[in-house]
């Protein structure tokens, strides 16, 4: 910083000389003199100095970095919530598949077994059983989604029950 003597010699109204402005803002002894020469520097005298926030720069910077990390963690958590992970999707799909299989097995176990009958009687007596099998509804009748991947598990014959696996990130976990 320039000396008070140099400042007082060189200072003039409307100066933009950085060395003079630096002195003006740092030296209390010359403030009165400067305002007398150029009243307009009254409030200019307040600026320039690099101020330190309460608590100091180190504490300020650590506070900022901590808040940044918290925000990043919150953003990451929100993103995880939106996108269900693949293992979780598979778990949901497996649960549905197990549910479907279980339901169908239960149905088959409870279905009346038809004893061998003479051909002439089968045509007559088995009609209600066949009708009952036709009216059985699947657990999931329709599934309408833009995002779902539906995989049909192939059966051994056309009589086998159809098992499908639904992969959908929008599927509620408690289905």
């Amino acid at each position: 910083m320039i000396s008070c003597e140099a400042f007082r010699t060189r200072f003039h109204a409307s100066t933009e000389d950085p060395s003079l402005l630096d002195h003006l803002r740092a030296c209390d002894r010359c403030l009165d003199f400067a305002v007398d020469v150029d009243p307009d520097v009254l409030f200019r005298s307040l600026g320039g100095a690099e101020l330190v926030p309460p608590g100091g720069v180190d504490a300020f910077v650590s506070d900022v970095m901590r808040q940044v990390r918290v925000r990043d963690a919150e953003t990451a958590a929100a993103a995880r919530h939106r996108v269900i992970s693949w293992p979780r999707r598979l778990a949901i799909a497996a649960t549905i598949a197990a549910g479907l299989t279980g339901t169908l097995l239960t149905y088959r176990a409870n279905a009346p077994t038809v004893a061998p009958q003479p051909i002439a009687r089968i045509a007559h007596a088995s009609a209600p059983v066949a009708a009952k099998a036709l009216v059985t509804k699947p657990v999931v009748e329709t599934y309408d989604s833009q995002n779902a991947t539906i995989v049909e598990v192939p059966g051994e014959s056309s009589d086998d029950v159809k098992v499908v696996m639904i992969f959908d990130e929008n599927l509620p976990a408690d289905l």
């Binding site: 101020l51 330190v52 926030p53 309460p54 300020f60 910077v61 506070d63 808040q67």
Partner: peptide, 23 residues
């Protein structure tokens, strides 16, 4: 930090508020 805080302080006129705003 110093530049941003100083500007906030001059505009706001209060150290604690200026610190919060600078952060």
């Amino acid at each position: 930090t110093s530049k941003v805080y100083a500007l906030c302080y001059r505009i706001i006129g209060n150290g604690e508020d200026a610190k919060d705003i600078a952060q």
